[in-house]
Design a protein around this nucleic acid. Sequence first.
DNA 1: AAAAAACTACGTATAATTACGTAATTATTT
DNA 2: AAATAATTACGTAATTATACGTAGTTTTTT
Lengths: 219, 219
Amino acid sequence: MSATIRVVLADDHVFVRDGIKSLLENEANIEVVGEAIDGADALEVVADSKPDLLIVDIRMPNLTGIEVVEKLRSENNDVKIIMLSMHESEEYVLKSIKAGADGYLLKGSSKEEFLKALHTVAAGGKYFSGDISSILIGQLTNSSASLEPKQNLGEEMMITKREKEILTLLLSGKGNKEIAEALDISKRTAEVHRFNLMKKLKVKNLMELSNKATEYSLL
Amino acid sequence: MSATIRVVLADDHVFVRDGIKSLLENEANIEVVGEAIDGADALEVVADSKPDLLIVDIRMPNLTGIEVVEKLRSENNDVKIIMLSMHESEEYVLKSIKAGADGYLLKGSSKEEFLKALHTVAAGGKYFSGDISSILIGQLTNSSASLEPKQNLGEEMMITKREKEILTLLLSGKGNKEIAEALDISKRTAEVHRFNLMKKLKVKNLMELSNKATEYSLL
DNA sequence: AAAAAACTACGTATAATTACGTAATTATTT
DNA sequence: AAATAATTACGTAATTATACGTAGTTTTTT
């Protein structure tokens, strides 16, 4: 059905590469066409052997697996990439996805899962080990539908209705003068509201205000 | 270590329930304390037996699995829930997550994956079969990490590397003085970069800068 | 009705930003 | 090698924001 999947392995540990190789040896339609011992090497080997799939360790000397992915993607190289990792670190998983990896496997994965991931990704799909799905879900529920405020404000950090109005206008890019006009109060008063607001939120400039407002979903 | 996990099964097919039961019978620490034959029944059985975990088919008469989850969550019932499904339908998966399911398993899952999911979820984690991770990734990359700029900048709106650094620092709440220190340039120079940046982006204050930077995903 | 909180507003002084002009030194591109 | 773009930096004047203090009205809570 499918042509042979040409694979490059990149991992600084010989025994890991050998382990994967022996695992893939018994598989039809899969051929290991290159190996790399660090990140920089991986880029060379991929450039040379133009594989269909790169299996790359996330932790490597010279360039990390993530940096390798970033580099390849920035060169518009669309080789399929599976990231290998010891740990289900949220940071690593998300960085890998962002960088453009097609899959993420834990080194503790079973042979079956490994092969399933390999075929899925080679066929153009994505495969992230079920063990790390909680991370994905966490991102999904936090980003798209943020139901609950991420943090609670300190008791005395409550902002008043008026301050909320000022905040809204500030965040939309209005200056004190414009705010004063919009709310039909004196410029001086607008300034005081702003001052009190920033004091309450313990921020020292507009940007921190903006960041805090987003972080605490103040609007 | 852990107490027994008390499980309720909800599926309109007897043989599916029996299959799962026989699978769980050999497991220590797992006890099936109730069974339901449709969605409405599931709610009753859960209310009665107050299990730790509900394994529920997505397709059922009376109330679908998703509706069952929604109902339970709306009643602030935080029983752990694993959704069972024949198909890796994007719609079903996302609806399940949104409704508040803790896991999603395909009926074709191996016994090992089934048990792993069960223990993971019972322990408070999430488990979504690796086969459906592509759906999750698709959502993630579409929603939070927008890879492509929402709009293209005007030709002469390109910002330089240095301006990007200044922008990053500005957005993090740094003032000109702090930026100057961070980049080891004179305060005056930092000011000029900032001035040029804002001129290019045609904004007249920090907030508009912040908004524009977000809108055009300048970082 | 009394007390507390919120909103309004003035003054004043220092600090920071804005909005130019000018120009030398590096990088980058052609 | 020449041209272009980027980075660096100084000066100056006008505007805006910051950081107080004080104090008279409303509004809300007790």
